[in-house]
Simulated scan of single mutants.
Amino acid sequence: RADLHEAQANDAYWHGLFGGIYLPHLRRAVFNAILRLEAQLDRITARPVLETSDLDMDGIGELLYHNHTLQLIIRPAPSAAVVEWDCYALRHNLGDTLARRDEAYYDRIRHGAAAHEAPSEGIASAHDRISFKTDISAEDLTPDATPCHSFQEWIDESAVTYSESSLPDAPHFSGGVADEWAVSKRYTLVENHLTVDYRIESARKRVEAQRFRSRLFLAMPSCDGPAGQFFANGQSQGGFGSPIRGEATWEIVLEDAVMGGKIVLHFNPPVRWQSAPHLTVSQSEAGFEKIMQALRLDLDWSVQTGKAHTILIQAEVVAHG
């Protein structure tokens, strides 16, 4: 009951001047309680390993796929992407992030104080003051064109869409890009490992190299602080708060002392990649500021028409101690 009440703490469910849903640590505390509660309920009454439920009540069912260690919530169409990625040992949702939306207070940032002068009498409230805790550009206010879900794919600039799914024992999706490319994607959970395997092929006879890309959004609790460390092929790349680019990488490790664990990503074949902090603009009593919501990780492989390609991503979620 205590976990249920903590999961209902209202601070993370609203948005306004003093924080709310834009503050990752508030959302994280709620998810922490939800996952503690869910793990206890699963010990009382076991759920099916794979089931469909309309969790967000939009009329379209999501897939819930879980074992005793990890849980994926997948939105089948059009991207077959992971909306929620829970680790029960860490009591953490790796998919806990926000897309950038066009907020009403963005107009005050764009037009400045002159367009929103405080009343001539009295002291301006925190709602009327125009101040900045961090530099904010027009690009920072641009809404995201796609949801911030993990394992979304593109071939060159065209999004891969999935229209068919089969669920014998694990989620398996089929789709592609127009009539040019066929793509299948399968998720598999074994203990604390998630495996995502792709098969990509094109029937076009003319040989041409294109790029197959997959994007992940990973909610790392240390954000851009010193407790987060990024490693590629065993070499330190620094923290999560700066853009990084790498090539021919077979292993990426994301260590997070605040989370109390790490994510170990293996790739076959090796991957070209780039990462960057995913930032949103929030309003606080101290002014407008950018807040890191997640680490965005873009993965890139070369694929060639006229032949089939198999790509494998394996993610191990490790809890320290």
Rank of each mutant, 00 (worst) to 15 (best):
A81Y: 11
S222K: 01
D224G: 09
E164Y: 08
L141D: 09
T146V: 14
G238H: 04
Y105K: 00
A113S: 08
M259N: 01
E208N: 09
H68A: 12
F31C: 03
F173T: 02
N192C: 07
H127C: 02
A178S: 14
H278K: 04
Y22A: 02
T310N: 07
P168V: 06
L17E: 01
S174R: 13
A209M: 12
D107S: 09
S79L: 12
L41I: 08
T45E: 08
A2F: 05
E153P: 00
S120P: 11
A124M: 12
T310K: 11
N268Y: 02
S125H: 08
S166A: 12
A319H: 10
S236C: 06
S137M: 01
R100C: 04
S137N: 06
L64R: 15
Y88G: 06
G16M: 02
P147A: 13
L141Y: 10
G59W: 11
I109E: 06
S302W: 07
W273T: 06
N32S: 15
M292Y: 00
E285K: 00
L299V: 05
T52Q: 14
D3E: 12
R101G: 05
L26P: 01
G175N: 11
A286W: 00
Y106V: 00
R186E: 03
E153S: 13
P226N: 10
R199T: 14
G19I: 02
F132H: 14
W85Y: 15
E251I: 03
Y105S: 00
D96N: 15
S137F: 02
H111G: 01
L312P: 00
N233C: 05
T97F: 01
E139T: 06
G228M: 09
N192W: 10
H25R: 14
F217H: 14
L98A: 09
G61S: 15
S236V: 05
C223V: 08
S202L: 14
L50Y: 11
V30G: 01
S302D: 09
P48H: 01
P76F: 07
D156G: 02
Q210F: 08
L299W: 13
E139I: 05
D256K: 08
G234C: 06
A145W: 10
G241T: 07
Q8M: 15
C148F: 00
R245I: 12
L26C: 00
R199I: 10
E251N: 12
N67K: 09
F217K: 05
A315P: 00
A118V: 12
A308K: 12
M292P: 03
V253R: 11
G16S: 11
L50G: 11
G234M: 05
P147E: 11
G59Y: 13
E121G: 04
D96I: 02
A227Y: 14
S282E: 01
H66Q: 15
